[in-house]
Design a binder for these strands. Sequence first.
DNA 1: ATGGGCCATGTTAACGCTCACACTCAGATG
DNA 2: CATCTGAGTGTGAGCGTTAACATGGCCCAT
Lengths: 328, 328
Amino acid sequence: MNDVARLAGVSHQTVSRVLNHHPNVREDTRARVLSAIAELGYRRNSAARALVTRRSSMIGIVTSGSVRYGPASTLVALEQAARSAGFFVSVSVASHPTPGAMRDILETFMDQSVEGVAVIAPGREVADAARAASGQVPVIMLASVPRESGGPQTICVDQELGARLAARHLIGLGHRDLVQLTGPDDWFDAQARVRGWRAETEAAGFQPRPEIEGDWGSDRGYEVGVSLLADLPTAVFAANDQMALGLLRAFAEAGVDVPGRVSVVGFDDIEGASNFYPPLTTVRQDFEALGKTAIDVLVAAIRGVTSDPASIPPELVRRASTGPAPAL
Amino acid sequence: MNDVARLAGVSHQTVSRVLNHHPNVREDTRARVLSAIAELGYRRNSAARALVTRRSSMIGIVTSGSVRYGPASTLVALEQAARSAGFFVSVSVASHPTPGAMRDILETFMDQSVEGVAVIAPGREVADAARAASGQVPVIMLASVPRESGGPQTICVDQELGARLAARHLIGLGHRDLVQLTGPDDWFDAQARVRGWRAETEAAGFQPRPEIEGDWGSDRGYEVGVSLLADLPTAVFAANDQMALGLLRAFAEAGVDVPGRVSVVGFDDIEGASNFYPPLTTVRQDFEALGKTAIDVLVAAIRGVTSDPASIPPELVRRASTGPAPAL
DNA sequence: ATGGGCCATGTTAACGCTCACACTCAGATG
DNA sequence: CATCTGAGTGTGAGCGTTAACATGGCCCAT
């Protein structure tokens, strides 16, 4: 920086002012400094800057380890939004979100003195860690749970609404014998999809079959599909597309007509869902909007402004796997 | 740090020595310092440390924007390996890898003074950027191209071998009328899979049909599947599982028996491939090993040691979508 | 005894930047 | 004409850490 200052014939402080877009610099001085910077290929040292300003320009993102569709897309959206807000992004993957591993991750972030943390929290363990961190820095949690008082800011795609859309769609097609293949009970998304499903079917005045618990995996979907063959409902709502895929295979192998005999709805609209056999009706989530909103809220919190984000509405994508209820 | 020193009754330098595991500290002094640190909840400031040591303990990872299976899994593996090697990880997503965007990303990394960069390079644009960066810091590129002289270190899963495994499998089953549905021609992986495919079929003494170019997407797979109906080969090698999925739908809808009439092989073993209809024979890549090796090489390069990593062998996963060639 | 070497510790000076303040000089104001 | 104001710039200190050197014991070989 001193070299730049010397070359431009000013003091280091003026160089600093130019770099920080300080208003009180004469136009031609600014130009001289800028050209000196260009000539020397100067970059300011972010460590020194962080040291004196006590701001690292860095935010941490915790994502779950699974290469599942949702987290991965959200991560991409978060990174984009954060970078365009002028922050560096430090990512940590929590493959096995034990309390110890989560503590490690958050300590790593504190060591880097991140200014804020975004946590993609699929379940309780990660959410607990997010709560613990929220005392020290601003935290935004991406999780489909209502915000707890004293807990971190929370934002999500409205999972309940998604499940309601699925239910409403099936009910509208005349289905009455419905069942949900849920996600694991300890996942927030799974819980919310159950809540929405129940709420909508009850509102329509009838009761679906008891839910069957799944594990998000297509193998489990297949297994459940096979077991349903003995006593088929007219429609199945799989809480994610992977499980729907397994269901579809089970039905296809057994020669069960989808959607003629049984309709199937998924959740996520993963890549390829439009080419399942048959193409899958599913609920699409706007992860990009989610990520962007999350970063907006987080950045606001870093600047000391609290905002109260709305949840993102999902959208039903109608494809060939659903049709009118069969006359039985 | 001074507070810690005062509480422990030593100088700040001794505290520093304890923190850096310097050998020449008496055991009881070390204990006093450690307990003072614990009592005060002290964390050392990484910006100050980076300032004076000129080492940021940070590596940058550039990943392609697609939520495609490979990059996502690799990213996870890279992060894990980097963190356990004691580095922070800064991630940037290159959704649209234009030269400008790539330059921005790399400048962001330079501003953070990362010590090394790992680049997941699916194609030429990103690889060019990696080459440009490799003059300034150590770079490891994850891309299925041979290392160019003067270019960055390169590592990959052996795509050619993967394609050969697929071809060998089909040829072993008696197939002679083969076609590959390739990835986009400007992707390294796509090129390598074509090379391996041709090499293996030629070695077996015959020529497959000219390749059909795809775009990795399942829609294109479906489209190609439909167009093949008029003149079916006995086996199709889809250069990724998504396209295989589209093929399978086209065949299923047309009532073409897979694998009775036509066998299908994919590539990637994405989540759910085991529950396609029928379950997909495919080539699995060990992204975890890839990521770990990449970081090992990068860290070695940062420490000034160059190593020459071997490529990772992929593995054929046999499932129901392939069978003996039909007698025609 | 004397000095050399090693261990444990302290002291001082950077690292590269921004902040707070001081200064100068123009023009406006009384 | 004295005074104030503010824009443009420079000066010095200090952010929290580590590196380099300095110090003072202690032990051992001379």
